[in-house]
Design a protein around this nucleic acid. Structure first.
Length: 680
DNA sequence: CTAGGGTTAG
């Protein structure tokens, strides 16, 4: 009965029964002690628990019985893993018990080895392992799994080969370990070789039942980019378990195949927290934030308590939607549920607050998180950069280095963007060079694109051109796009046309390049060329993504399109706008019609400017939000130059703080000025 | 006593 309780993870019930047994004067035997200790291993989490149990065992006279000592070692090992106890001293005690045991069995050896592996002391694990006369497959597997977790792939291969040459048969645990090591390290050829080896070695019928191996293969193949192969392995599994379903679900989600992911999700007869979490965050990133949030509440109404990862997905949805109120509510729930120390949720919150325009809140989450990882640092550096605080972003980066956190590829992307937004050309170049020289990370296309952007914004087009010529690989679309927008900004026609031509070849369906080129011609008054570009674009069936802006009012999101006729209160917006523009002009605002892409009468142009979605949204905010409240606007494209200017005047005329997030960065308008200092 | 499925940063 005690064993039964402990198998059901009910340690307390097991102990209660043990006490009753002793009260009724039944004498516990070796089996009793073994199963009670197994139960205690479930709940013991402090050093003194271990020592007390140790005394009980010694007094009972069972201190030399192998199964009892094994169970006691197991308690020490589990406790060592608890955050409330000192891992190294408990492992030392466990080791002492192990060393003086009169008779060790298989379990004794593997318990101590896996104990060391779990506590990340691979050297000690290896030392014990080497001392085994007859090494069991379980022990091999435990060692291998340790190397997998530490990312020591070649150690994994070494062990795998040794087993083979010593004639020890690999089992399904060995295979799954090796396959996932390959998948993690991106060693796809090795992974495929292992797959071939398994097919050669294993008899068909046994192979058919190795679900776990097939599950690991699904992951290996989708990570290689071979989604179809992953799917056909999934289809070939005769008895799929939940992990098989979750594996193929993550495959589709990670590759952005939301439609396929949804149909897998719907087909699943059993789902666990992981399935929901994968689907929610997948929707947040590749689908729609709204759908993700709907799924999150559906999950709760199905009676599942979301874990912190699920919250992270929901919070990300709020970041995408710029839905500050919902984000705040989720933050509140997180605190109530005791998840506020969660790393992943904290990281998601930093980004959510930053992308909703509340930099202070992002920073205070960052400061109060109990522990940080590179994601947290990257998120906060990115947040500062997006809000135009380049110097603070760089300062935080230095702090990160002082904390001995190694920068990764993404750190450099955020650092370069931060420099670019703030015009910190020299620092940006230095950091770019340090990537390879100090940290051994070779810059990718995206890093070069940001470097080009940095140079171009600062007007250093020739230098940018030189950099492009010396890129050690064929420059991709993002690089030419950075160059083109630089040319537009500084009116460099010839270079701009060249960049645009490359883009039309590489990404013919991307509307952005056509618009940039047309914009460049429009600024120069070359209306014939503007018309040609537009015709060319139409001829290729490319449509301009319509500009839209949105804001949250009373917990509801209001969307405005250019020249909006859909929003129910748009008439009030237009009439207030007409009156407001007059006041702005008295303050010195002059509509800048070079931002209109069609050639028309100048009065018409001025009217067209006044119907830009970001202006409509700001005016709606002025009408609806309480006096003095900050207006937060979000736009799907870059803010237009005239709007940028107009909003500056609006902030002054109305005495309001206005924050605009466009696709690239934030603008904080106050007292007629913008935080970007007109550098964007 | 060993394995296979998740999150957050651009």
């Amino acid at each position: 009965m005690i064993t039964c309780y402990s198998h059901n993870n009910d340690g307390h019930a097991a102990i209660q029964l043990f006490k009753e047994m002793r009260q009724m004067s039944f004498k516990p035997d070796n089996f009793t002690y073994t199963s009670v200790l197994a139960a205690l291993a479930l709940i013991a989490d402090r050093e003194r628990h271990c020592h007390q149990l140790h005394c009980v065992v010694v007094k009972s006279g069972t201190g030399l019985v192998t199964s009892v000592v094994n169970a006691l070692i197991s308690v020490y090992v589990k406790c060592a893993f608890s955050p409330l106890a000192s891992s190294s001293s408990l492992m030392a005690s466990a080791r002492k018990l192990f060393d003086v045991m009169p008779e060790k069995d298989e379990l004794s050896w593997t318990t101590i080895i896996t104990g060391y592996v779990k506590n990340e002391d691979l050297d000690s694990a290896k030392e014990v392992f080497d001392g085994m006369d007859e090494k069991l497959v379980v022990a091999w597997n435990a060692m291998i799994s340790g190397y997998v977790q530490k990312g020591l792939v070649f150690k994994v291969f070494e062990m795998f080969r040794s087993m083979h040459s010593l004639g020890i048969k690999h089992d399904d645990f060995t295979y799954t370990n090796v396959l996932s090591a390959c998948a993690d390290a991106g060693l796809f050829l090795h992974g495929k070789q292992v797959h071939a080896y398994i097919l050669r070695t294993e008899a068909k019928p046994a192979w058919a039942f190795m679900v776990s191996v097939n599950n690991a293969l699904i992951t290996l193949y989708w990570k290689c980019g071979e989604l179809e192969q992953a799917r056909s392995i999934f289809d070939s599994i005769s008895i799929k378990d939940l992990i098989s379903w979750n594996a193929i679900l993550s495959a589709y989600v990670s590759k952005g195949k939301i439609h396929e992911a949804k149909s897998i999700f719907d087909e699943m007869s059993e789902k666990n927290m992981l399935s929901w979490t994968v689907m929610i965050s997948g929707l947040a990133q590749h689908g729609s934030g709204e759908e993700a949030l709907k799924l999150f509440s559906k999950m709760k109404s199905n009676g599942l308590e979301p874990c912190d990862y699920a919250f992270s997905g929901a919070i990300t949805s709020c970041a995408v939607l710029a839905s500050l109120e919902q984000g705040r509510q989720l933050h509140g729930q997180l605190i109530r549920l005791g998840f506020d120390s969660s790393l992943s949720a904290g990281n998601a919150l930093i980004t959510m607050y930053a992308r909703c325009g509340v930099l202070d809140a992002a920073y205070s989450v960052f400061l109060t998180m109990p522990c940080l990882d590179s994601v947290s640092w990257n998120a906060m550096i990115a947040a500062l950069g997006q809000h135009g605080h380049g110097n603070q972003a760089l300062q935080l980066y230095e702090e990160m280095l002082e904390e001995r956190i190694l920068p990764d590829r993404i750190t450099f992307l955020t650092v370069l963007s931060a420099c670019s937004h703030a015009g910190l050309v020299e620092q940006g170049k230095q950091h770019f060079n340090s990537m390879n020289e100090i940290y051994g990370i070779s810059p990718g296309e995206d890093h070069y694109a940001r470097l080009i952007d940095l140079l171009c914004r600062a007007g250093k087009l020739t230098e940018a051109e030189n950099v492009i010529r010396n890129i050690p690989f064929e420059p991709g679309a993002s690089i030419w796009e950075a160059l083109l927008s630089g040319c537009r900004l500084h009116g460099n026609m010839d270079l701009g046309v060249e960049a645009a031509e490359r883009l039309f070849e590489m990404t013919p369906q991307n509307d952005g390049s056509y618009i940039l080129l047309a914009n460049m011609f429009a600024t120069a008054g070359r209306w014939d060329d503007v018309a040609t570009v537009r015709k060319f674009m139409r001829g290729r069936g490319v449509k301009k993504e319509p500009g839209c802006s949105w804001l949250e009012v009373e917990n509801k999101v209001h969307v405005f399109l250019v020249d909006d006729t859909v929003h129910p209160e748009v008439l009030a917006v237009y009439s207030y706008m007409a009156e407001l523009v007059l006041r702005l002009r008295k303050l010195g605002y002059i509509p800048d019609t070079k931002y209109i892409l069609h050639d028309m009468e100048s009065e018409q142009k001025e009217y067209a400017l006044s119907t830009h979605s970001e202006k409509l949204a700001v005016v709606y905010g002025l009408l609806k939000l309480p006096k003095g409240a900050t207006i937060r606007i979000f736009k799907n494209l870059r803010i237009c130059g005239d709007c940028h200017n107009a909003v500056k005047f609006m902030s002054k005329a109305e005495g309001r703080e206005i924050i605009v997030r466009d696709v690239k960065r934030f603008h904080h308008f106050k007292d007629g000025e913008c935080s970007c200092g007109n550098y964007w």
